[in-house]
Write a protein that binds this DNA or RNA. Sequence first.
DNA 1: TCTGGGGTCCTAGGACCC
DNA 2: TCTGGGGTCCTAGGACCC
Length: 388
Amino acid sequence: MSKIILHVDLNAFFAACEVLRNPTLRGKPLIVGGIGRRGIVSTASYEARKYGIHSAMPTYQAIRLCPNLIIKEPDFKLYHHYSSLFFNYLKDHVSPILEVASIDECYIDATEVLRRNRDPVTYIKNLQQTLLKEIGLACSIGVGPTKFLAKMASNYRKPLGITIYRRRELAKTLWLLPINEMYGIGKATAPRLLKLNINTIGDLAKTEDPAVKQLLGKSYYTFKDWANGRGSDEVIVEEEDPKSIGNSSTFMFDTDNYEEISALFKELSNQVSERAKREGKVGSTIQIVMRYYTFENVNRSITLNKPTNNALTIFYEAMKLFDRNYKDEPLRLLGVTLQNLSDEGSLVEQLSLFDDFSEKSKTEVIRDLLNEEYDSPPFIRLSDLRKD
DNA sequence: TCTGGGGTCCTAGGACCC
DNA sequence: TCTGGGGTCCTAGGACCC
């Protein structure tokens, strides 16, 4: 028996939150995004979209399109607040079988509610209207037998759309869409599929071309399943447990200045450390990313013997990675990420080493543990970290 | 004045172990 | 009489999504 999955997607969410905080913004062209010279649009209100403004567009371009554009810098505390209200409302009023997909979208297994409802479409329309009235947020709702179909359906009509994708109707609905609109197919893969004569989702659903299989690798089967209505229908209720914690920042102007670069690494390391501590996480791998002025990205990482969330340890390792790998060219962006996360509490378990049959004395074990950790690293002078 | 910042997942090669 | 075949971990790069 098929399930009934809903995908609920908030429309222009960040902009909508700004309007809720300040109702005088309603009906005006508004964006949430960076204000600096390298800022980009994160979310545009529907009024701003009429000017041709869209997300990922440089802010200065948006202003050129609409000189009286209102610009707000992102406030994630505000967005998380409304996001929680939204999820909790759905858990309480539709079903607790809810999977958070991102800050502004989720899947719900609504099989039960809708099966015993005589008029499911009206139920969903009412849900949409109630969310708008009670919380003040507009959403699009997609309905389908799998998560993929529900996701594609919610995307079909915005804002305030309701779309249903039924398996038996795919040939005259989903399959007609261009291949670049398929979830999981981005700007690198779409052109390559077009070259192989895969122009629509239907083409992909039906193809047996080995060249397509070669191009998509393991994902070939996943995508074909999705397109044929055979994808996953498991809505996974779980606490979000981050797999990595990272911060990155773009310089106002590209730079090769060592003081500027190390100062940013220091700041990023502090941010990562603070977030990891707040989440109660430690990580054993420290990764840096260097984006050069050419947009070339270089990642370097190191795995330590012992996980950490100590700011100085992260900074020290980040600088070592940088020194070993930097080619003396202007940088655009730097990033620091902590990976291979585990719970901070599990650090304590390492003390159970004492209970084991170690031939080392306790003092030796303790000494080794201390040596592996940089919790009191050597004092670092910038000059010590320089290559020459 | 082109192009943010937060992530996840996949691939592929090499080291290392048995 | 050239050098098997796994499994796992680490590292680097890239695609994709919101």
